[in-house]
Amino acid sequence: MAKVTLKVYRGDKEKGEFKTYEVPIEDGMVILDAIHYIQANIDNDIAVRWNCKAAKCGSCSAEVNGKPSLMCKTRLDRFAKDEVITVQPLKTFPLIKDLVTDVSWNYEVNKHITPLTSKDEGEWVIYQEDIERVQEFRKCIECFLCQDVCHVLRDHDKHANFAGPRFLVRTAGLEMHPKDTASRTKYLKEEGGIGYCNITKCCTEVCPEEIHITDNAIIPLKERVVDDFYDPIAKFLKGLFKK
């Protein structure tokens, strides 16, 4: 029977090593299947998060051969025969054990975003063309792969100053909501740290939901911040016409 060789990180923040496993291959098998095989047959205690196994919940995020990926949709037949596949936990968050990291920082960031705010008390009439942009952002499954790959967090540790792509996407969904009346540009500029993003697009590259994070969420938000803070001429003209 054909086998695949995986090098999986086993250990915690302080101590650990890559352990090599051989796993028999089935048709259409994904990395998560291989980890489950290890769990059921070799090492019961190998820690991994997962839920839906259909790329809908965003639990099984890890780095496969250095690329942030959902293990449930990374097919083994995408790799060359005899290739040793390295599976690491996410780098950007504190490691708990094996493939599981502490992503609680993300949940804290989320609390700081102004929720949907509307004065329209009646029944809402909203047309499809007005929500198409928002619906793209709401596809997000919070796998945090974009947060993991973003070099601002990954390499520069700007967790305290930068909300990360996931939360810029959420903010974009609120800012562009046709019924929302709150403004989040001040938040974006200051607490959210949108200026730290240098639009190098890795978030978009890894997004399993294929959300155009940079082009459709972050850049439009940057432009909205420009409107409010960096465009003196427009501000001046606007002031002129208002009077």
């Binding site: 915690d12 769990q39 090492d43 019961n44 991994v48 054990k97």
Partner: peptide, 9 residues
């Protein structure tokens, strides 16, 4: 095997 730290088994 092992202890109670994230131990799916």
């Amino acid at each position: 095997v092992n202890n109670r730290t994230y131990n799916p088994g």
